[in-house]
Design a protein around this nucleic acid. Structure first.
Lengths: 344, 344
DNA sequence: TTGAAAGCGCTAACAA
DNA sequence: TTGTTAGCGCTTTCAA
């Protein structure tokens, strides 16, 4: 059933039918109703390819995932982001296209994306410090929003980021308030922008209390369980071991936990662990209540906002890029579940 | 730069240029070279919308995720699957479209998908027992491959599944070999087909050793940490507690672990835990070596195979549906990392 | 081996 | 308020 068929059936021109179905104001109310009824009865659906070609809009948003960050992508965080964004697209009638791009030929890949015109804009995932993609996309004139930020990029660009610095500053402060003075940071690879920011937040909190950050307490690497385990084993074997670990991921925290177990140490009594993940609400930290920061809930919000900003940017091409910072909630006294204020 | 532009530039007709670029045999070798050179020089990229409209193929695969399973989607497993599938699509020039479908109007949604024609086929995620989507898609004639299986569906349909039953049978047997007789199964919701199969595997292993499965040792629910914790607390408070827990997910296992901690029990001495997740290689189970089943690596393979099967099906519409079963490896003596035999 | 012409199914000026 | 007419950029008969 094509538009032409439907028009013929109704004794109208395809134009009128198109207008009726697309809510143009100049169509008589009676006609519109007739058309809508017929369309529903016939189960008519406009062919999206044809519409895309005619309008010149792809009605699709690309999510570009650098293949080098595949480890990152194979991450619950990514799924949360997607969940947030997809709801927005669905409402606006956009498709969501996942695009894996090899690091090697990014320039070519993005140029192709632009020229082929199968997306109206892209969301950039996993930005690095000084990420070249931002300049590239700006240059290409392809609308984009970055999930995260890229330190050292001077161009203005639209982005939505979780406030990693503040989250880690607050988390560190929380541990300081419990009396900890030697706090280890088990961080991600510092090429990743968020990891850099997390470290800055951590250091800010220490400096604020006149504690000189000890570089030996700083671990940076792939956020795996092995990383946490090795870090904890190594640091706890020192003469001046940390009394608390602040970790960047669930897996690292689990590794630290296993190290404690192996060493016969009790979590929350001998050593505290605090991590940046929703799922670790039960980690006791010397405080009476469990505590965690609500990354995942925040990331879902970030997904939603990224999508909204990108669609707005596509609708209004001239507007200056918008930036937003989502606060990651530090939750005390809650068990697992969405953070207060998070959407259901 | 359109095809027409390029043709004009070369003093050829659009037809010839199109043929040259698409590898038609009747083009003179010299012409083809000239055209290809010019295309490369001009950075020409065929507009995908136009091509799609002209050929009638969407060159896109939809991944349909039931919204009710969003919890499932917010799952590393999904990301692994995607990683496997996207490589296949990229090579074949297909786009990967994520489609979230509300449970309410599935019929309408799939019909629309078919009529709109913006995908050439779909991958069905998160099948339930007796899942109605299979009949619906078969009826619509939209090519599809199911990731997983749906018990109680009699139609033949293409699918790729990880052999959950066997994985859990082997895991259970492993615990039995260690001398365990009371083994709790902390399973997912049994509406999910994979959860059903996991239970069957578990029961099969018990029955094989003439142990009557104790329904009180069977937990089924959302695979959260709270689930594992509650289950373990409850079961370990009984007069006849289990000596081992077999869990369906990382989070559940963590919950069980926390319960042990709270009760002052030692894992691997007082109680063993075995789980179906790559990331838990360090769980000691009374055996000398850590052990785990490699779900994630298997799922990545499943993603690749699903994509390959779907593309094949689209290429050869008449062919009967193909089914494949991926064995989840039970790994003993390895630390975290890909399973032996898994692609790098 | 190449080209002319007719679509694919829709939208959007421009007329009426 | 409706219809006529041209495309959108490509592929694909059919003819040369």
């Amino acid at each position: 059933m094509t538009l032409k068929d439907l028009a013929q059936l109704l004794g109208l021109s395809p134009t009128t039918v198109s207008r009726a179905l697309n809510g143009f104001p100049e169509v008589a109310e009676a006609t519109r109703r007739r058309v809508e009824a017929a369309a529903a009865a016939q189960g008519y659906r406009p062919n999206s390819q044809a519409r895309r070609l005619a309008t010149g809009r792809a009605m699709a948003i690309g999510h570009v995932i650098p293949l080098s960050t595949q480890h990152e992508m194979v991450n619950p965080v990514f799924a949360d982001f997607i969940a947030g964004a997809s709801a927005v697209y669905a409402r606006a009638g956009y498709d969501m296209v996942l695009i894996a791009v090899a690091d090697a030929d990014q320039t070519r890949a993005y140029r192709a994306l632009r020229a082929q015109g199968n997306v109206d804009g892209v969301i950039v995932h996993g930005p690095r410090a000084g990420d070249p993609r931002i300049a590239l996309l700006t240059d290409l004139g392809l609308p984009f929003v970055v999930h995260g930020r890229a330190s050292g990029v001077d161009l203005p660009y639209a982005h939505v980021d979780v406030n990693s610095a503040r989250a880690f500053e607050r988390a560190t402060r929380f541990l300081l308030d419990l009396g900890h003075r030697r706090i280890a940071l088990v961080n991600g690879l510092e090429e990743m922008d968020f990891a850099l920011r997390r470290r800055r937040g951590y250091e800010r909190a220490l400096v604020e209390r006149a504690i000189v950050p000890d570089p030996r307490l700083l671990i940076s690497g792939e956020m795996t369980e092995a990383q946490g385990y090795d870090a904890a084993r190594r640091l706890l074997a020192r003469a001046d071991p940390p009394s608390a670990f602040l970790t960047s991921s669930l897996l690292s925290a689990m590794g630290v936990r296993r190290a404690l177990w192996d060493l016969g140490l009790e979590m929350g009594r001998d050593v505290s662990i605090l991590t940046h993940d929703d799922e670790l609400g039960y980690f006791r930290n010397g405080a009476e209540e469990p505590i965690f920061t609500a990354t995942r809930a925040s990331v879902r919000i970030a997904g939603r906002r990224c999508a909204e900003l990108l669609l707005a940017q596509i609708a209004t091409p001239g507007a200056p890029p918008v930036a937003e910072l989502i606060e990651a909630v530090l939750v005390v006294g809650a068990s697992t579940g969405p953070a207060p204020g998070a959407p259901p």
